[in-house]
Amino acid sequence: MFKANITITLRTSILDPQGKATGHALGELGYKAVQSVRIGKYVELEIDAPTHAEAALVAKSACQDLLANSVMEDYHVEIQELVAN
């Protein structure tokens, strides 16, 4: 069993007003080191697949078919193996 940790964000070429507003607020709080903020979604999938590579294929396919809209969003998939107790 594998777990896919998926982050979905607006494509970098697209203005993220939520991130921008949050970045301003951090600046007001004194976080001068923070240069930019981008806000996205986080999705976890538990995937029953024989190998790490096949779990990654399932997760990427799910992103393309439903989880992300490629017109405006990018996704990033990280796969970890779940070890049974």
Binding site: L15, P17, Q18
Partner: peptide, 16 residues
């Protein structure tokens, strides 16, 4: 747009 019958996508309003 989501179904592909029209191009593009509708994002969150700029004003949030």
């Amino acid at each position: 747009c989501e179904s592909g019958l029209l191009p593009g996508a509708l994002m969150r309003n700029e004003s949030l």
